[in-house]
Design a binder for these strands. Sequence first.
DNA 1: AACCCAAAAATAATGTATGATCCAAACATT
DNA 2: AATGTTTGGATCATACATTATTTTTGGGTT
Lengths: 231, 231
Amino acid sequence: MDKQPAATIDVEPVPASIYELIREDIISGKIGPNERLKIADLAKRYGTSTNPIREALQQLRGEDFVIMEPHRGARVRPIDENFVRDIIEIAALIEPALTRWFVGIATEADIAQLLEIQAEIEALNFSDPNRHGQLDTRFHEVIYDRHYNRHAADLWWRHREVLRAISRRFPTSLSRRAAVLREHHELIEAIRAQDADRAAAVIAAHVEGSGRHIIEHMRLARATGARKPLT
Amino acid sequence: MDKQPAATIDVEPVPASIYELIREDIISGKIGPNERLKIADLAKRYGTSTNPIREALQQLRGEDFVIMEPHRGARVRPIDENFVRDIIEIAALIEPALTRWFVGIATEADIAQLLEIQAEIEALNFSDPNRHGQLDTRFHEVIYDRHYNRHAADLWWRHREVLRAISRRFPTSLSRRAAVLREHHELIEAIRAQDADRAAAVIAAHVEGSGRHIIEHMRLARATGARKPLT
DNA sequence: AACCCAAAAATAATGTATGATCCAAACATT
DNA sequence: AATGTTTGGATCATACATTATTTTTGGGTT
């Protein structure tokens, strides 16, 4: 009854938690920065009672996606250029450290996996931004996922998700594309050569480049599109 | 972060939020690591209904003080040696970066303030651990609080609170005491000399030393005291 | 008797609903 | 401008429904 053959398969089998839904709506921009989050509205919107909404908001607050003032409710934390700069800076500190460690434990198989993903990325050649994002995430995931410092890896992941969401809104410039491919290759090379310093340097540059790219686009969008810091 | 200076008399006139109460009870150890957090119990304990409790737990979850599994409730995140190691490693990456920046903007007045706090710390000479913790926090706060990267500074703050809570449980060894004083002085010196590299190196060593100290004590406590990973 | 397992009961988390307060902001009146 | 009033929402307290987990219980089996 509920089993559809469905050629392409639907991607939303589980209704996901309210928390995830709101979060997704925030980072995807459906709920705009600084926008007021009224409990009653959200409850209606997601078809639940107010309780789960309140809980989701508290969690989001803990993760800093949402700002709350007593008796004045919640609003979406504005994800602006500064915010991006901040998390990029942190990423630029953490990722090289994680990468360094990976260099010490990487096996032939790991490198093969990286090459494989990289090959897919190149085959795709940025034609499907969504898919590209997935692959790119997976590429770095291979490197970070086995690290013993789960805290650091989680931090990376959380930042990554925010950035991915933002990036989705604009295309990747040609020069950035080239840089991404080049840096991935260099990274693989450095890992293969067991050169932790170089690997760390490459990933640091990679992160910074990505940050610059995003911020430039945001700035551009801000200058071009209509403005509404709002409320 | 939102703490009043309040000379020495810091009373708690306001009942504080449920969130803060639970949080305090967790980091002060009143609720022990890994302990189950039953909503009904907590509600009784703090004399509220279940609603605020649920929300507080969600927030704590977002901040990673509490772990939740669907339909199995919340428990206090076990703060073990690995956890400490993880956050120390992150701190060891972030703090030097924050410090570096401070070197570039520090004024005479800033240095004077650091010296003043440091003098108080030395006068106190670890006789009151609680007060010492306060002063030590304030010392580093001076350095980080004005940094533009609020995200990084908040991260530091959160980590700091966890560490402070753990440290409260055991005394500071003599060698560690000496190291703390020495490193603070070196740090001030480096800042005064506008030597960012040295300042960063000092703070990195400071963080790592603190981590080692804590972990050693934890290990000792684990080996000595009774065991109970539990439930 | 000791052991295993599955049905039943107890426990708790999670969700819904509703009413009562309280607070901040906007509005109205002096 | 200073003060009172209204109002939208957040916050809190209950009560209850639903669902998943844990514990208990009562055989049956070795």
